[in-house]
């Protein structure tokens, strides 16, 4: 019988498969977090792992983030390779000292003598009325602080490949997955949350952006959901005779500056879209990059679209007003190409 060519997985299963393969390969890899065991992670990122590896390697913790993330640091310093889940990125507040004063700084302060191969895995994103304390992405908050690699993949293929890279990396990696791209049955069903994923282990390098659509008239830079919104907007722009190039950043740290600069050399127009807050964020960083190193390639000022510096509100009309979407990207892009 002929095998189907394309094995399709949802985002959550792609992550879980990556972790499984690495756990099979390396006995030092283990998972810790709230509801990562029998439940399989609230967003399914550890689905099936408890059943295969048992409670010694897939450990449900008490609601004690400071202690279990701190413990990941201590265990990593002993040569283990912990994957710890912070259930929602929003909960970083209760444990940020461990994350940024310790996990991110100890390798540096020790002159590189202490290695902390930790994956801090966490769920990001809104759009389903979970309100101000459960809807943020906080990409820039983590990317701003030196000492952590920060990745935010957008497809099942990249989720698996970048998770494997993250686990094998000797540095702390903050691995952000977007809830709506997990392909869970109880959220919005997006085509983008299901995709081709090879069975074997493979690596998608950390620090490489991806041109997900080629174009000549405008560059749109996005990450996770905003990449998918940008692709949708690009289809509509095409109907208006505009060819948008869309870049999926994939990694915030390290940032692939070259891919962005190459693109604006070609399109001469840049729109940056982010599901994080506008000020001091990813959009500002990329705009600064364009200003510093690509200014003479630009035919018009850079435009930015992001959450307008308010917490994510609960009520649907309010939340939809602050979050970027394909329509808003389309309109911003139209303004930009007409400048």
């Amino acid at each position: 019988m002929q095998k189907t060519k394309q094995r399709l997985l949802t985002g959550n299963k792609a992550i879980a498969e990556a972790i499984r393969l690495e756990m099979e390969r390396d006995p030092n890899v283990f998972v810790m977090g709230e509801d990562v065991g029998v439940y399989g992670g609230i967003f399914g990122a550890t689905e099936g792992l408890f059943q295969q590896f048992g409670p010694k390697r897939v450990i449900d913790t008490p609601i004690s983030e400071t202690a279990f993330i701190g413990a990941a640091i201590g265990a990593a310093a002993e040569g283990m390779r912990p994957i710890v889940e912070l259930m929602f990125v929003d909960f970083f507040g209760v444990c940020m000292d461990q994350i940024y004063n310790h996990m991110a700084k100890i390798p540096y302060m020790s002159g590189g003598r202490v290695k902390l191969p930790i994956v801090l895995m966490t769920a990001v994103g809104g759009g389903y009325s979970d309100a101000a304390q459960h809807s943020q992405t906080l990409y820039a908050t983590f990317a701003h602080l030196p000492g952590m690699k920060v990745v935010a993949p957008s497809t099942p293929y990249d989720l698996k490949g970048m998770m494997i890279s993250a686990i094998r990396d000797d540095n702390p990696v903050v691995f952000m997955f977007h809830k709506t791209l997990q392909g869970l049955g109880w959220m919005d069903q997006l085509d983008a949350s299901v995709g081709h994923v090879p069975e074997e282990a493979y690596i998608v390098p950390i620090g490489k952006a991806k041109v997900v659509r080629e174009g000549t008239d405008i560059t749109i830079v996005g990450i996770q959901m905003t990449t998918h919104h940008a692709l949708e907007a690009a289809k509509k722009l095409e109907q208006h005779g505009i060819q948008a190039e869309v870049i999926d950043l994939r990694s915030l740290v390290p940032l692939d500056r070259e891919t962005i600069l190459q693109s604006i050399k070609k399109t001469h127009r840049l729109l940056v879209v982010d599901e994080d807050y506008l000020s001091y964020g990813m959009t500002a960083e990329i705009a600064a990059l364009a200003a510093e190193e690509g200014l003479y390639d630009l035919d018009a000022p850079v435009r930015r679209l992001a959450v307008p510096d308010v917490p994510i509100p609960y009520s649907r009309p309010l939340e939809q007003f602050v979050l970027p979407n394909a329509d808003k990207i389309f309109h911003e892009a139209m303004k930009l190409v007409n400048e």
């Binding site: 309100a131 101000a132 459960h134 509100p313 609960y314 009520s315 309010l318």
Partner: peptide
């Protein structure tokens, strides 16, 4: 508030957990 309405305790900004 839980229905996300403007007459809610937080004018729809908070929701059921806030």
């Amino acid at each position: 508030e839980i229905f996300g309405k403007v007459t809610g305790l937080g004018k729809g900004k908070g929701g059921h957990m806030h």
